[in-house]
Simulated assay, not measured.
Amino acid sequence: MGCARVGRSHLLQAACHAASDADKRALYLPLYDLGHFPPLMLEDIERLDIVAIDDLECVIGRKRWEEALFHAFNRLRDAGKKLVIAASASPRQLNVVLPDLASRLTWG
């Protein structure tokens, strides 16, 4: 979590580059740019080794996105993959509507 211009995006991208350098499959998803699309990009995401989701706050409160994120979180966890998420505030401050997603976001 952190306010604008503190390096969240840079850290997420660096994690993806490091994974790539280690021959791992990584994906960086900037929701500021992608959040206006439907969350189809989260389907089969558990095939990747690391997923970095940036700007989570951009899709909070949108039912389809929250449900897709909840299911993606579970599939990644069950597959033993890594999920890294950044937002402008802590999970408790984001006003997540879906209780199960709110719970998952506070796990880590």
Score class of each variant (00 low, 15 high):
Ser103Gly: 07
Lys82Ser: 14
Ile45Cys: 11
Asp49Val: 03
Ser90Lys: 07
Ala68Pro: 00
Leu40Pro: 00
Ile45His: 04
Leu56Phe: 11
Val84Trp: 08
Gly61Asn: 12
Leu105Ser: 06
Arg47Phe: 01
Gly80Glu: 02
Trp107Ala: 14
Val6Arg: 15
Leu56Val: 11
Asp78Lys: 13
Arg77Met: 12
Leu29Ala: 12
Arg77Trp: 11
Leu11Val: 10
Ile45Asn: 04
Asp100Phe: 08
Ile45Ala: 07
Ala89Lys: 14
Arg77Phe: 13
Arg47His: 09
Asp33Arg: 14
Gly35Gln: 08
Leu69Glu: 01
Arg77Asp: 11
Pro30Ala: 05
Val96His: 06
Ala68Thr: 00
Gly80Tyr: 00
Ala87Cys: 14
Pro39Arg: 04
Ile45Arg: 05
Gly80Cys: 01
Leu101His: 10
Leu48Gln: 09
Ser103Thr: 15
Lys24Tyr: 13
Met1Arg: 02
Gly108Ile: 05
Leu83Lys: 07
Leu34Val: 03
Ala68Gln: 00
Trp107Met: 13
Met41Cys: 13
Ile53Phe: 06
Leu34Ala: 04
Gly108Lys: 06
Gln93Lys: 09
Ala52Gln: 08
Ala87Asn: 10
Ile53Ala: 03
Cys16Asn: 02
Ile60Gln: 01
Leu29Met: 11
Lys82Met: 09
Lys24Gln: 15
Leu40Met: 04
Leu94Thr: 03
Leu29Val: 14
Arg77Cys: 10
Leu12Glu: 07
Cys58Trp: 00
Ala79Tyr: 00
Ala86His: 07
Ala22Gly: 12
Thr106Gln: 14
Glu43Asp: 12
Leu42Ile: 07
Asp44Ala: 14
Ala18Gln: 12
Gly2Asn: 05
Gly35Ile: 10
Arg104Leu: 02
Val59Glu: 01
Ser9Pro: 00
Tyr32Arg: 14
Val51Cys: 12
Ile50Glu: 03
Asp78Gly: 03
Ala15Trp: 12
Ala52Glu: 07
Gln93Leu: 05
Arg92Phe: 09
Cys16Gln: 02
Arg62Cys: 04
Ala86Asp: 07
Asp55Glu: 12
Arg75Ala: 13
Ala22Ser: 15
Asp33Ala: 14
Gly80Thr: 00
Met1Gln: 01
Val59Ser: 02
Arg64Leu: 10
Arg8Glu: 06
Ala26Thr: 13
Leu48Arg: 14
Phe70Arg: 05
Leu42Asp: 03
Ser90Met: 07
Phe70Pro: 01
Phe37Asp: 11
Phe37Ile: 03
Pro38Lys: 09
Leu11Ile: 07
Ala89Tyr: 02
Arg62Leu: 14
Cys3Asn: 06
Leu98Ser: 07
Asp55Ser: 08
Gln93Asn: 08
Arg64Thr: 13
Glu43Phe: 03
Cys3Ala: 09
Ala102Leu: 01
Gly7His: 09
Ala14Lys: 08
Leu69Phe: 06
Leu12Asn: 10
Phe37Val: 01
His36Ile: 04
Ile85Val: 15
Ala15Lys: 11
Asp33Met: 09
Leu34His: 01
Ala102Ser: 12
Pro39Cys: 05
Glu43Cys: 03
Pro30Cys: 02
Tyr32Thr: 02
Gln93Trp: 00
Asp100Pro: 06
Val59Ala: 01
Val59Pro: 02
Ala72Ser: 09
Gly2Glu: 05
Ser88Ala: 06
Tyr32Asp: 13
Leu11Thr: 03
Ala86Pro: 08
Pro39Gln: 03
Leu11Asn: 00
Ala14Asp: 04
